[in-house]
Design a protein around this nucleic acid. Structure first.
Length: 429
DNA sequence: TCTGGGGTCCTAGGACCC
DNA sequence: TCTGGGGTCCTAGGACCC
């Protein structure tokens, strides 16, 4: 059996840990650039603020109902996430950390009753030690556990299970799915649920009853996996070990539109530098790099442009200057004069373990006393990373990133880094 | 005027190889 | 006049997730 532990309204709950005075107020957290609503308290949901709502469109409503608004504070959320995960990992032998606010637990050889008891205790422990409320769903596959979690969140038959918990036992699977809208199934998004509705499929139970051939044809192989899981057949593997990343992305919308090539180059260089940092944190090297640029697609008054390109690097690398050179080369190819650019994306893919790459053919022909190129580059990069880590991120950066950073973003209402910066530590009087 | 960021998996088509 | 079959790699794009 599987249990999935999901933090309720996670980012909002994190803010409330240090602001218990907001426990009954509507609270929202905004994305980078203070753009969209990415987390909502139940009170905010009841006010009709949708997920992903553009903040500027809701300013009046925020004011009217005294909605408390926070800019995203990922240092705080990341730290509290680690604390929650630590408790989960210590509570069970097999845990898969699935996202910042979610983890799967695999229970072997336990009865349904036992699992209910374990997870009830776990829920109470997380609430008491960290202050984050969680919902837990229990079932025989990961997809069914996610379905149970939906039911726990919606408070179905609360008398049957302890608060915040819901279980789907093996004998009642198909019966439980009758009331679950197909759009709420894990793996069925907006497009697919519209398609399914058009074909008369509205509930998870109906989807589970579809023929394999039909599903494979219209919902692809991943859709078939979802359907099998709904029938109680494991098709989505449990992954306890953290798998190596396959791609790394660094992308940001600009605080204000950018038109000059020089500024675009600086932005792309900065994003590349950030991506390369993440690459080195993962101990990986990239074989390919890509760049995409786009204008503001919401704007009706300006001409639109989007373009992207990628290239294969001569040799897989995690060396920032090489990556910046390639990224800027791509940018120069796709950039067009006369547009107001809103966003740039740099992505690294074809990632390998850094220790498994081949040296270049001529690396060893350097004169004695000179370090092979790769070694020199690695040394330089680890020094840059160390300085930024120990003295504050951004203490040292690459000249091509420029100094104006006019594309920098707004974050007007960010809360203190309560748990990760000494001077932000809360005081108790 | 203002609309996020970071990932995964799957498919399809074209170029190329033998 | 007649023009195969089985691969790989690359790139782009679309769906999904949190």
């Amino acid at each position: 059996m599987y249990a999935v532990v999901d933090c309720n309204n996670f980012f909002v709950s994190c803010e409330r840990v240090f602001r218990p005075d907001l426990n009954r107020s509507p609270v929202v957290v905004l994305s980078n650039n203070d753009g969209c609503v990415i987390s909502r308290s139940n009170e905010a949901k009841r006010l009709g603020i949708p997920m992903g709502a553009p903040a500027f469109q809701y300013e009046e409503l925020f004011k009217k109902y005294n909605v408390r608004v926070f800019s995203a504070n990922f240092s705080l959320y990341g730290d509290l996430s680690q604390r929650v995960m630590k408790i989960i990992v210590e509570s069970a032998p097999e845990v898969e950390i699935y996202s910042i606010d979610e983890a799967f637990i695999k229970y072997d050889g336990c009865s349904f009753r036992q699992i209910i008891a374990y997870t009830e205790l776990l829920r109470k422990t997380i609430l008491k030690c960290i202050g984050i409320p969680v919902s837990i769903g229990i079932a025989s596959t990961k997809t069914l556990a996610k379905a149970a979690n939906e039911m726990a969140k919606k408070g179905w038959e609360t008398k049957k299970y302890p608060e915040g918990l819901y279980g789907i036992s093996a004998s009642s699977e198909q019966q439980e799915l009758v009331n679950l809208p197909v759009a709420d199934v894990w793996g069925i998004g907006r497009k697919l649920s519209l398609f399914l509705n058009k074909h008369g499929i509205y509930t998870a139970a109906q989807l589970a009853a579809c023929e394999d051939e039909w599903v494979k044809k219209h919902l692809t192989f991943s859709g078939l996996k979802t359907v099998r899981e709904l029938r109680g057949i494991e098709a989505v593997p449990f992954e306890e070990v953290y798998p190596a990343k396959k791609s790394i992305i660094s992308s940001k919308s600009f605080g204000s539109p950018v038109s000059s090539l020089q500024e675009m180059r600086e932005a792309v260089a900065s994003f590349t530098s950030r991506a390369a940092e993440k690459l080195r944190e993962e101990n990986e090297v990239a074989a390919h790099i890509g760049v995409a640029i786009t204008t503001n697609f919401h704007s009706k008054h300006h001409k639109q442009y989007y373009n992207s390109q990628s290239l294969k690097l001569l040799q897989p690398t995690a060396h920032t200057p090489e990556l910046i050179s390639s990224a800027v080369t791509i940018l120069d190819r796709i950039y067009k004069e006369g547009y107001r650019y809103k966003k740039a994306v740099v992505y690294l893919f074809g990632l390998h373990d850094r220790y498994s790459i081949q040296q270049g053919m001529f690396e060893n022909t350097l004169p004695w006393g000179v370090l092979p190129e790769m070694k020199k580059k690695n040394k330089l990069m680890s020094m840059v990373d160390r300085l930024n880590r120990e003295m504050g991120s951004g203490i040292i950066h690459f000249a091509r990133e420029g100094v104006s950073k006019r594309w920098y973003q707004k974050r007007k209402k960010v809360s203190p880094k309560y748990t990760t910066r000494w001077k932000d530590l809360p005081l108790v009087r």
